[in-house]
Amino acid sequence: MACGGEEPAAPKVCASQQKPEVHSFQQCGPTLDFTPINRYAGTLADAIQRSEDAVALINGSCTGTLIAAGAGPVVLTAGHCVAVGDRPLLVFNFEDDADGDPLITEGTVIEQALEPDYALIQLDTLPAVTPVSLTTQATEPLAIIQHPRGHPKVIAEGTFLASCNQLVYYADLDTLVGSSGAGVLNRQGHLLGVHTDGDCNEKGQGVNWGWTAEAIVEASPYLQIADIADR
């Protein structure tokens, strides 16, 4: 009831898969709850600090995460951000009070799809960071490390709602344009899914969602089942 008025209805989840949409504003609740990554001291702090260096700004308009894979680390992002053969520009450690060496590099999009909504980018130069592991294990809370509107890296936390139909749903987790492609991380800092869509509003109604890592691995020729660390 923090928003006043009637209590919001329970968000609808596990409906039929929806086509990717890019919303300019996906604020879940009365405030926009972003924390600059190097000021975050929440319940996931230890895991987030192990994962955040692997997050990159892509072409100033999307977010991606360097993931661990048997065939070699690649950046995982949303498919509606790029096309196969594109040569996007990626910036690592673009953040307030940066705690690592910034790296600007290009890469080649080697896979892209819209169902599931994902893309893989093979980098020209790998950053000196630890790639994030994929997972099927949802936890409370979930978090997204992101570059909303191309701004320096921030984090938002939210509530896990459900995982079904190859999608993962979460509430009270703010995103903006530029957040597309960011990893949905569990309590261990592993990547459960890729943020692609949202339908939240300032009254606390609605839900954000993304495609699960498991769905992406099943669709990808490059990724393998063994790349999911704790299936």
Rank of each mutant, 00 (worst) to 15 (best):
E95Y: 08
V129Q: 00
D174A: 09
D172S: 11
L134T: 05
V154F: 14
L120C: 14
A171S: 11
G181Y: 05
I145E: 03
T136N: 13
G107K: 00
I145M: 02
G100F: 01
L161H: 03
I144G: 00
L167R: 10
A182W: 02
D99E: 15
S179N: 10
N93H: 12
D174M: 07
V84Q: 13
E115S: 10
P152V: 13
V132P: 02
Y118S: 12
L126N: 03
A128V: 13
L103Y: 04
P127C: 11
D99R: 12
P141Y: 05
V168T: 10
N93C: 10
L90Y: 01
N165M: 07
D96G: 15
P116A: 07
L176G: 06
V109Q: 04
I155T: 05
Y169L: 06
V177S: 10
H151N: 15
E140T: 11
V82I: 13
N93Y: 01
A143T: 11
I121V: 15
I144Q: 02
V84G: 12
D117I: 01
H151P: 15
T105V: 08
D97L: 11
E115Q: 14
L90F: 10
F92Q: 02
T135I: 06
E95Q: 09
T105C: 04
T105H: 02
C81S: 09
H80I: 01
Q137W: 08
H80T: 06
D101N: 13
G158Y: 06
L103A: 06
L167C: 08
L114Q: 14
V129R: 00
I145L: 11
P88A: 10
K153T: 09
A113E: 07
A83M: 09
S179E: 07
V154C: 14
A128E: 15
L120K: 01
A171R: 01
Q146P: 07
L89A: 11
A162D: 14
G181S: 13
A113H: 10
P127G: 04
T139P: 01
T130K: 11
Q137C: 04
D172L: 14
L89N: 07
R87I: 02
D174Y: 09
E140H: 15
L114P: 06
L176I: 05
C81A: 07
